[in-house]
Simulated assay, not measured.
Amino acid sequence: MGPVKRVILIVLDSVGVGELPDAAAYGDAGTNTLANTARAVGGLSLPHLEALGLGNIIPVPGVPPASRPRAAYGKMATLSAGKDTTTGHWELAGLVLDRPFPVYPDGFPAALIAAFEARIGRPTLGNRPASGTAIIEELGAEHVRTGAPIVYTSADSVFQVAAHEEVIPVEELYRICRVARELLTGEHAPARVIARPFAGPPGRFVRTPRRKDFSLPPSGETILDALKKRGHAVVGVGKIGNIFAERGLTESFPTRDNEQGVDRTLAVLRTFPSGLVFTNLIEFDMLYGHRNDAHGYAAALAAFDRRLPEILGALATEDLLVLTADHGCDPTTAGTDHTREYVPLLALGPRLRGGVDLGTRASLADVAATVAEVFGFGWPVGTSFYGRLVPEGGGRP
């Protein structure tokens, strides 16, 4: 065994670090989630991420380059087409998509909605891209009156169904979403069908925690599958189980927010001494990026930075920690969609070299290739950066 026997991969959902060369084709020219957020709030204060080398990746107001970064640092491009959650996470896990998942900027085809309504025995409302909170506020009262579920989508490849828990019980909503998942095949196969239950009286509707995703399983082998097949622990924290349709995981721990995501990651580190721990921290994207809330986004980054010493303190001698993202969601843009951006890369461990400039990586799949090399096998896509981290002789730097 080399200097690493456990990899902790934490995805700061949507914390992009600047437009990709093809960003204009996605309507995302000029986007830079991290730097634009920093400018919008007059600079960020992230002392622990700063010490790792976050400001060495790109210029970030308030986060200067570290003179001796604790981590290796760089940024990664998305090789797959698209800018959605599933695409980014699958590529991190070593699966590059040759065609994007379908998206529905004009809503879903009328024939598909008609077939869905016939199967569930109810009419539907909505059928257009929308913010989940906004469309519930707009159509929630009509839904309560008619019993018709609200169907909507977003810039992501998603078919979302919202229903009041007292109008359509949650288990029935889940059944309705399973029907949608069965219908949505072939060219109309979005990455996720999402049940979005809500509660409360008109004017004060709130989404409840019983959201459930019905995801497409990965279309090929991922690093999760490969590790599990080889007998390693593969633990998902947050929405990782949803994104991979629970495939390739030996354990899965859903979370409601970033704080719980960090708490459960720390608990997993105390329980699983080897293998892969794969965490998604969702609040940056879900609560702030999609709502154009730069101040909220900045506060969420600061909150994670305050918890980072706990994560670093929990690292064992033979650990590799990788901090990255899956796409951007620049809260300073006119739209509320994900943005086509590079993602940050910070990699460190007690027995690994810090201060290494890993440059601009061609694919998020470099993470999967690195994990594969850690555990002693090859990966068909991506280029491992593990060799850049290991000191000469493989010992303590």
Rank of each mutant, 00 (worst) to 15 (best):
A294T: 07
L49P: 12
T265K: 03
T185K: 12
A134G: 09
F116G: 00
G354D: 02
K75R: 15
S157W: 05
E251F: 11
E165V: 13
S67W: 14
D28H: 15
G313S: 09
V381Q: 03
A25L: 15
H188A: 05
E165W: 10
I58W: 13
P21V: 11
T370E: 00
E19I: 11
A334E: 14
H188Q: 12
N280G: 07
I194S: 09
R178K: 14
I311G: 04
M1C: 12
T33D: 02
V63Y: 05
A316E: 12
A300I: 07
H338K: 05
P197N: 15
I240W: 00
A118F: 07
E182W: 09
V356G: 05
G126Q: 01
C177T: 09
E341Q: 10
T78N: 07
G382L: 00
G289L: 04
V277C: 07
E221N: 05
D156P: 11
L216K: 11
E182G: 10
A134I: 11
A162I: 06
R230F: 06
A110M: 07
L184M: 03
M1N: 11
A372W: 00
F116P: 04
T370A: 00
L323N: 03
E373V: 07
F116E: 01
A23H: 12
E171C: 12
G186N: 03
Q160S: 13
I194F: 14
R39S: 14
H327L: 09
S274N: 09
I168F: 12
V268N: 03
A51I: 14
P217D: 03
D366M: 03
V96H: 01
R353V: 13
I120T: 06
E251A: 12
R211T: 13
T124N: 01
R307H: 08
S215M: 02
P61M: 11
T370N: 01
W90C: 02
G387N: 04
V390F: 01
P105W: 06
E50Y: 12
N56R: 15
A298D: 02
D293T: 07
A35D: 03
A93G: 11
R175G: 07
E138W: 08
V151F: 06
G393A: 00
E182L: 11
F278M: 06
T87V: 15
R230C: 04
A130R: 03
G147M: 12
R247N: 05
L125A: 07
R351P: 08
A233H: 14
L358C: 10
A334R: 15
P64I: 14
Y342F: 14
S252L: 09
R122G: 05
T339D: 06
V262I: 10
A298K: 02
L320G: 04
G378N: 10
A163F: 10
M286D: 04
P102Y: 00
A303M: 07
E341I: 10
F272Y: 13
A365I: 05
R210P: 06
R119Q: 09
K5I: 09
A130G: 08
R361E: 02
G376P: 10
L49S: 06
F198T: 14
I58S: 15
T133A: 11
S219G: 13
E318L: 08
F304V: 04
G394S: 01
I223R: 01
L315T: 10
D330E: 14
L9I: 12
L52F: 11
T255K: 02
